Computed example of a mutant assay.
Amino acid sequence: MKVRAPGMFVEQLRRKAESAGGKLIDLHTWSLKMSQYDHTTEVCTKKPLSQRWHVLGDGSGVVQRDVYSAFLARCVMSNTHHPSHIETMWAAQKPVLLQTGWLRSEPAKIEPSGKITVATPLEQVVCDRGFAIGHGLDAVAATREPGDPGGFALRTPCL
């Protein structure tokens, strides 16, 4: 704790936000349960950390869990979820998420047991020197990799 100084980081972040004309809002993440909440059904469902894609309760698609949690955090008002506000914000963000690939509109299958299943995309790091959505040439990395057979490098490193 003393090496990382989380309190100092939060205080610096608060000062920088205020100097830029904004403000830092503290969220009670334990009660909000953003990685478990589904705005379409207004229900929290516990999931294992290995489940990286959130299946929307109405079966309209799947969304990447961390991106969806960040979206829900952006929509919090008075430290609670407001479904009507979230739905308004979702209508504006849905096309953007679909275009970037963070939301897939693949239909979910509801099994007789009531379990919802969907073919979620594999989580892979782009290692074949092809372009990923939103990635472009990195001139600095390209000059540092003279032996690159493709002649270019991606900004996201292969892990």
Rank of each mutant, 00 (worst) to 15 (best):
Y68L: 02
F152M: 08
G150H: 07
P6R: 06
H39D: 04
L154R: 15
S31V: 09
L49A: 06
D66F: 10
S60I: 07
K94S: 03
V118H: 07
M8G: 07
L13C: 10
P149H: 00
K94L: 14
G7C: 06
W30Y: 09
G136A: 09
M8W: 10
L98S: 09
W30V: 13
E106F: 07
T156V: 11
S35Y: 01
K2P: 15
W102L: 12
L122G: 04
T120D: 05
G130C: 07
P95E: 07
C158Y: 06
L49W: 00
K16A: 13
L122R: 10
Y68W: 01
T40Y: 05
Q36G: 10
G59H: 03
R144A: 11
A92Y: 03
K94W: 01
G61E: 00
E11D: 15
V3A: 12
L13T: 15
S35N: 07
V43P: 07
F71A: 00
R52L: 14
K94Y: 07
W90S: 01
D128I: 13
N79E: 12
I116K: 12
G57F: 03
G136E: 09
E145L: 11
F152C: 04
C127N: 02
E18V: 15
T45S: 14
H54L: 13
L137D: 14
V67T: 09
H82T: 12
Y37M: 04
G130I: 03
E111Y: 11
P107R: 11
L56I: 08
Q51N: 07
P83W: 02
G114E: 13
R15W: 03
L98C: 13
W90D: 02
E42C: 15
K33C: 11
I133E: 01
G21F: 06
L122V: 08
E18M: 08
S19A: 14
S78H: 02
A141M: 10
S84Y: 04
G57H: 00
G136M: 03
T80H: 10
P95N: 07
W90P: 06
G57A: 05
I86T: 02
I133D: 00
M8E: 15
K23Y: 04
M77H: 14
F9I: 13
L24I: 09
D38M: 14
K33V: 09
G150N: 13
Y37C: 00
K47E: 06
E87L: 11
K115R: 14
V140Q: 11
D138A: 04
M34V: 05
P157W: 04
E123V: 13
D58G: 08
A17Q: 09
P107C: 08
E42A: 13
L97V: 00
L13V: 12
V126C: 12
L154G: 11
A73G: 11
T88N: 07
S31M: 10
V43H: 12
S113P: 08
R129Q: 12
T45H: 12
S78L: 14
L72Q: 03
C158E: 05
E18F: 05
L49V: 02
A153I: 12
G21S: 02
S84T: 15
I86A: 08
K2W: 04
S105T: 06
W30T: 13
V118T: 08
E123P: 06
W53S: 01
D138P: 00
T45Q: 13
M77P: 05
D128Q: 05
